[in-house]
């Protein structure tokens, strides 16, 4: 029963070996989804291209539905995973900083790695920026960030539990919202592109 590595059912080297294959699938999904093209990524914020929203929500929901189904059939115990702890104050502040970074930089770290490794020069510049940012953070951590980072700790908080509903019901609600969003964004995208066409996004391939 999963998760395998935390229960020492697979060895450390095998776990790392599997990571490469999981990464390959992740990289193919990101690249094939069009995430190396920064204009597609930015499109979600301006209404001319919503591919990011579609790929992102499909991925998160596929993961959630699959994992909770497996949990209910006893194939994985989600409680034994390295379940993320919530520190709502730094996450909220950092999230807004990353939102600004998204608008300026046109990538997030994972997509920038794909863009950089497939020759996109703006992706290489972004990767360089991420390194500068993390070095800066590392050297100023104790004076600027250490205190803030552990504010608002809520432990391994589950949103469904906080809202007083079952995991299944919560995922079902998110699924319905996502399906409605997929339909609505197609209409928005069509209208935005009819009204004021954005210069052609090259190498669409979609």
């Amino acid at each position: 029963m999963g998760p395998l590595f935390p229960q020492e059912l697979i060895s450390d080297p095998l776990n790392l070996f599997i990571a490469i294959f999981i990464g390959i699938g992740f990289g193919i999904g990101l690249e094939a989804g069009g995430f190396t093209n920064t204009r597609k990524l930015a499109g979600v914020f301006y209404g001319y291209d919503f591919v990011v929203l579609k790929v992102f929500f499909t991925a998160a929901l596929t993961g959630a539905i699959g994992l909770f189904l497996m949990d209910s059939y006893g194939l994985i115990d989600i409680n034994l995973t390295f379940y993320p702890k919530t520190f709502w104050i730094p996450t909220l502040i950092a999230g807004i900083v990353m939102g600004l970074g998204f608008i300026l930089g046109g990538f997030c770290p994972g997509t920038s790695i794909c863009a950089a490794s497939t020759g996109k020069i703006d992706g290489i510049a972004f990767v360089g920026g991420v390194f500068i940012g993390i070095f800066g953070y590392a050297f100023t951590y104790e004076s600027l960030f250490q205190n803030l980072r552990s504010k608002g700790g809520l432990g391994k908080a589950n949103i469904a539990e906080k809202l007083g509903m079952s995991n299944e019901l919560f995922i079902f609600i998110v699924l319905i919202i996502a399906i409605i969003a997929f339909i609505v964004v197609d209409k928005i995208q069509k209208r935005v592109n009819e009204k004021k066409p954005v210069e052609k996004i090259e190498e669409l391939g979609l």
């Binding site: 970074g101 300026l104 046109g106 994972g110 510049a125 390194f131 953070y137």
Partner: peptide, 22 residues
């Protein structure tokens, strides 16, 4: 390129403070 570098820096800081990225 300048916007990409600045965006990257913000993600670098944000991802460390916020315990992860997208």
């Amino acid at each position: 390129i300048i916007a990409a570098i600045i965006g990257g820096i913000l993600w670098g800081i944000g991802s460390q403070l916020g315990r992860g990225c997208t």
